[in-house]
Write a protein that binds this DNA or RNA. Sequence first.
DNA 1: TTCCAGGGATATA
DNA 2: TATATCCATGGA
Length: 268
Amino acid sequence: MKTVSITNPYFSICQTLECGQVFRYKKNQQSYVVFSQDKKCELTQNGDTVTLKSDDIDYFLHYFDLDTDYENITKTLSQFDELKEAIQFGKGIRILRQNLIETVISFIISQNNNIARIQKIIEKLCSRCGRNMGDYYAFPTIESLLILSEDDYKEMGLGYRAQYLYSAVRAIKDGALDSIQSESDAKARERLLRIKGIGPKVADCIMLFGLTRTSAYPVDTWIFKANATKTLDTPKKVEQYFTDRYSQFSGYAQQYVFYHARSNKIAK
DNA sequence: TTCCAGGGATATA
DNA sequence: TATATCCATGGA
């Protein structure tokens, strides 16, 4: 077990883990624990200093995107007046570099679902066929998921998403994601959309959180409500307008807006 | 009890 | 291409 401390004003554990991009973490009294694949990391925060404790520190330094300059990102995006308040509110958010398969499976489960229930379903999935790591379970591998039937997924509460996950697991086994990281943004998105159960919004979440394609601007119900106008009256129009506006910074902008919109609503 | 959730597939025109 | 409808479940 190794420990590393990072001092960075653009790193809030709470904001980064609770902004909706990741579902597998636990909040304790003084710390958070986050799980990724078969690894875990315990984090504590004191002012601008975050301390990470893990058996695989290097993995989590990459996971928390610590090589990226968020001062530059927030400065660039603050030129857009409509983002200033959201950036001020969530400037400690970092876009996690999550495992691709874990992201694909998690966001297929997320469709038309609420975050509390998504977390429970993923937890069931891990305890059902993830490797026992002692005090937690690893995220299941594709091989271990191949054992499950569509009814097994339904028993875990997936509802009508059971068939999507069942077929997606098999598509992945058959190579649906092979070498996708080497594809262009457009081509990668197109390949994701070919998988049954992945539509525009889930594809964009996978692009952003699983492939670190920051040109993606996922439009879910929260983002749509926050952005819709008389002319931007469909999710597709909202996405086109803001990806054009924010370009390679779209994904960051989207997270600030999502976290801000959702926090305000829940607090109320 | 009702509304809604980090939507997508399918049928229809 | 665009719109309408259906889909399971449980959190709030």
